[in-house]
Write a protein that binds this DNA or RNA. Structure first.
Lengths: 125, 125
DNA sequence: CCTCCTACTTGCGTAATGCAAGTAATCCTA
DNA sequence: TAGGATTACTTGCATTACGCAAGTAGGAGG
C-alpha cells in the first residue's frame, strides 16, 4: 500500500479521486454514516468486503486524514474526522443518482439524505 | 473489459460505484462538462490518461448508458446522455470537497459549480 | 491456563492500470 | 490524387489493485 497520495493534477475533482477513487473507500465511509465504528462492523456490511481490503482501506483513509482511531491501542475503533464527514454530500448525491438511474436499488433512507456533515463531526476536544 | 456490470449489493451508492468507482470514469465524465467530445480532447486533459484506458472507459461508460456516440461511423464523437449528465451533482460535491480539504487545488469555476444537469441533457429528438 | 473472539496479516491467483509501440482509416496539402 | 500527417484506436507487457482462503496475535472470559 502507498503511504503517500500522489496527485495526477491540481484539479480538485481529480485529487479527490486520488484519495477515494476506488471500489471500496466510499463504501467504507458509508459505514461510518450508518453507525459502524469497528473492524468487525464493516465486515458485516451487505457487500462483504474482504478482510485484507478492509484493513488496507482503513489504513489509507486514516493516512489521508478522513478517519482516525479512537485510541492508540489494539482493538480500537475508528471515527470520522471533519474531512471525512464532509464527504457526506458526495455520498448523498451518488446514492440519489443510483436510486434514480439503476433499477431496483434500495431507497436511501430519508434521514440519510437529509443529514448534514456537521452531525458527524467528532466531539470537540 | 467486462460487458455487463455486476452489482455487489442493491445499495444505490454501492451500485453507483460499481459503474463509476474507479480512478478514471469520473475524470472522463468531467471532460464532457467542460466541452470535450472527441477521443483526442480527453487525451489532452491535465491528467494524461493512457490511450488504452481512455478507449476502455469510453466503452464502459457507453455500455452503462452514461454516454453515447454521436454517430455510428468511425471518428465519431461522444456526448452525455441524461443518465450521464445527472452525475453532475456528484462531480460538483467532489470538486467542492477537494478544493476545501486538499491544499493548493484549483478553484472550481463558478459556472461549473452553478451548472445544472439539464444544461447538459442531449438535444431532444 | 485455556479457549474464544476480534482484529488483523500473508500468500497467491485474477483483474485493472500504466507505458510504449503499432495500425488503420481519414484528412489535408501539393 | 498521391502521400504524409492526424485521429482514433489496439496490442503487448510490466506493475499495482482486488478477491479468496487461511493463518496469527493479543486481549477477554471462564
Amino acid at each position: 500500500m502507498a503511504e503517500t497520495v500522489t496527485y495526477r493534477s491540481s484539479c480538485p475533482l481529480a485529487s479527490a479521486l486520488d484519495i477515494v477513487g476506488d471500489k471500496w473507500s466510499l463504501i467504507v465511509l458509508r459505514g461510518f454514516f450508518v453507525g459502524y465504528s469497528r473492524y468487525g462492523d464493516f465486515l458485516k456490511g451487505p457487500e462483504s468486503i474482504a478482510t485484507n481490503i478492509l484493513a488496507d482501506r482503513l489504513k489509507s483513509l486514516e493516512c489521508a486524514g478522513l478517519i482516525e482511531r479512537t485510541s492508540r491501542e489494539a482493538r480500537a475503533g475508528y471515527r470520522l474526522t471533519r474531512k471525512g464527514a464532509d464527504l457526506l454530500p458526495v455520498l448523498q448525491e451518488m446514492a440519489r443518482w443510483g436510486f434514480e438511474h439503476i433499477a431496483e436499488r434500495w431507497q436511501p433512507p430519508a434521514w440519510f439524505m437529509k443529514a448534514k456533515p456537521k452531525d458527524f463531526y467528532p466531539k470537540s476536544k
